[in-house]
Amino acid sequence: MEQITRPGFATRRRTQLFDALVDLFLAEGFAHLTLDEIAARLRCSKSTLYTLADSKEQLVREATVHFFRRATEDVESHIAEINGARERISAYLSAVGTALTAASDQFMADLDAFPPAREVYEQNTQIAAGRVKALIDDGVAGGDFRDVHAAFAADLVTTMMVRIQQRGVRDSTGLDDAHAYRELAAILTAGISA
């Protein structure tokens, strides 16, 4: 009997599995989980997991990529309709903080301890800093911000984003990620306002 597949079903199913995998990892971390445990928790077979990646290490890396892709889409859709450079930077950094609130301490510790996933996170931090730099450049060009060295401001943001994501800011100030990003946005935009 010929199997009929609906167009897009495999892609949809793959996305659903990665979404569930990301949610599991964000809540509990991933270092302690075996492939058998992951399959059981996702209610799928190990062979299904192997359609996503060839090993647990690759699965973790791909799930981390999926998380940051999903977070980026959420952040960008959040700021799409916002006008004004100051408001866009504030909304962007707040949305980044919101996207990270789902990440448990265990996930962040596992992420930091696993070089392939940490590399994905560091790359995404650099991309986010570049996005902030572009928003600052737009604000300078539009007269909303004084003429600042946008690369320096972006480097400052990058440094703080890393400290926030590594929980250094929370440990030293008690601020959760979302509040830390809002404070960063307020300090940054007030400091560069025209």
Rank of each mutant, 00 (worst) to 15 (best):
A95Y: 05
A109M: 14
L59P: 03
H66A: 10
L111M: 11
L33K: 10
L24T: 02
L49S: 00
Y50G: 01
D74A: 14
R61G: 08
E76M: 11
A117N: 09
T34N: 04
S90M: 15
S55E: 05
K56P: 03
A102K: 12
A103I: 09
L49W: 01
T48E: 08
P116T: 06
A71K: 01
A99R: 00
D112C: 15
T101H: 14
F68M: 05
E62D: 15
D105M: 14
D105K: 15
V75W: 03
H66Q: 05
A117H: 10
D105V: 15
F107L: 08
A71S: 09
L42F: 06
A102V: 15
L100V: 13
R61F: 13
T98Y: 15
A63W: 08
I82S: 03
T34F: 09
L42P: 05
I89Q: 00
D23A: 10
I89P: 01
R41E: 07
L42H: 04
L93P: 00
A102Q: 11
H32R: 14
L42N: 00
A27Q: 15
E87F: 07
F114M: 02
R88M: 00
A113M: 06
I38V: 07
I79S: 03
E122T: 11
A80V: 09
R86W: 11
S47R: 11
R61V: 11
F68H: 05
T64P: 07
E57Q: 11
E76I: 08
S55K: 01
V75L: 00
L35D: 05
V75Q: 02
G84D: 03
L35E: 07
A85Q: 00
F25K: 02
K56T: 03
A53E: 07
T72S: 08
E119G: 11
L26V: 10
A102D: 12
D23R: 10
L33F: 10
L52K: 02
E119W: 12
E119S: 13
E62G: 10
E87G: 02
F107Y: 09
R86T: 12
F68I: 01
G84Q: 05
A117T: 06
S55W: 04
L52M: 04
T72F: 09
R118V: 09
D23N: 09
D112F: 15
F67K: 03
I38A: 00
R69E: 13
L52D: 05
R88W: 02
L59K: 04
G29F: 06
L111V: 06
A71P: 03
F25V: 06
T101Y: 13
T51P: 11
S90H: 14
K56F: 06
S94A: 15
L35G: 10
E81N: 14
A99Q: 01
A85Y: 06
R41P: 13
K46F: 08
A31C: 11
D74G: 12
L93C: 04
P116C: 01
T101C: 13
S45M: 07
A53D: 01
A95G: 09
T72N: 12
A85I: 03
S90K: 14
